[in-house]
Design a protein around this nucleic acid. Structure first.
Lengths: 205, 205
DNA sequence: CAACCTCTTGACCGATTCGGTTATTAGTGC
DNA sequence: GCACTAATAACCGAATCGGTCAAGAGGTTG
């Protein structure tokens, strides 16, 4: 793998993106090294030169994604003491911004949750653990509900927002092009509308 | 294919579900006839006995799904002159009920939209056309907005509900078990909350 | 120019799997 | 026991699988 690290960053990300895309799309067993090599515009032999084996490459990707998520997580933890809607918005924004440069990480991560191949089953925990941590961080807090006209609506609304985020992810999964700014704009408008209708008057700054 | 129609209905649906699941999960090229045969608990030779070739099986599935969607569509068109939220709810309910017996149709249909194999590319239109028709039917109407405290919120709220539905679909895609009633309950509660907060007082019956 | 080194890859390996065929079996009615 | 049918085990050539290796290509030293 030191062979791989010696490459230029551009070449590395091209290869990683190709691998993330193929594994994300086909799953571990159905994705072939040849698929990845073609997508990365290199030879199949080079993939083995860099990573040794298919399994090693997959595990490398798991750890690679883990590091990226850790990076997001830290930044997000900094500004976590705000309003519920602001919190959701900023964390989504950070998440989206990070994935802007790494467009295939999202579908790879979600594919990991469906992976069943015994070859890599033991290794999946590397990523699943990390993604759980990420989700738990932006959980609903107690005093969030107080701002709602009907405090009991806070939980469902939060769930609806998570659901919508999943909907966005599903809608653009596998699409080649993806206008992040437009989607975030859309999401922001939706959040504003929800806030306006659910919050007590006094919390509508 | 007359050979296939001669089977018992139970066996037929077992085979179709296996095929829908495999094609839906792996896509046309990566799904092998062997995968399908194993999932259907029959021999590979039987699959060819029934459908002739891989391509014929795939096209049969496209037409099979088209018929099912047509069935839903007709029923849904009958009671289309109600309140926006009721309309979304009942159409979702009908859709869900139909898919309760055919658990793999949903992921198959969404996989068709991502299919790129030249072998079947021409045939995809069989289904894509039909699913478009289905979506267009439950579109927002003009007088729906009048019931909203802020009429301009109607469009976004409708979009949010579509997004949430996609989120539900994504969340349970590929899951073996899926408690439809719980999900529909959840969805219904969310709709009730939205209506309560977005509608003018006079329309809250 | 020759000798050397690094990186990339075309060609190749045995094994497996592919879509598809066929010959044999197992089951059923008479 | 016999004929007919439906299912499959065994098989086909071709392709692809994960993985290896030796032959270049390109650059750096003498």
């Amino acid at each position: 793998m030191d062979k791989f690290l010696a490459l230029t960053e551009e070449k590395r990300t091209t290869i990683l993106n190709a691998a993330l895309q193929c594994f994300g799309k086909f799953g571990y067993e159905k994705a072939s090294i040849n698929d990845i090599a073609v997508a990365a515009h290199i030879s199949k032999a080079s993939v083995f030169q860099y990573f040794g084996s298919k399994k090693h490459l997959y595990i490398y990707l798991l750890e690679y994604c883990k590091k990226i998520i850790e990076g997001i997580f830290d930044k997000e933890a900094l500004d976590s003491q705000t309003d519920l809607f602001d919190r959701i918005m900023t964390s989504s924004k950070i998440e989206m911004e990070s994935f802007k440069t790494q467009p295939f990480i999202l579908q790879f991560i979600s594919s990991v949750w469906e992976e069943t191949s015994p070859d890599v089953l033991d290794s999946l925990v590397i990523l699943t653990e990390e993604t759980c941590k990420f989700r738990n961080d932006m959980i609903l807090r107690e005093d969030d509900a107080l701002k709602f006209k009907n405090p009991e609506d806070a939980g469902p609304v939060f769930q609806m927002l998570l659901l919508m985020a999943e909907g966005y992810a599903a809608r653009y999964r596998g699409a080649d092009t993806f206008d992040f700014d437009t989607v975030m704009d859309d999401f922001q408008k939706n959040i504003a509308i929800l806030r306006k209708n659910f919050y007590k008057e006094e919390y509508l700054k």
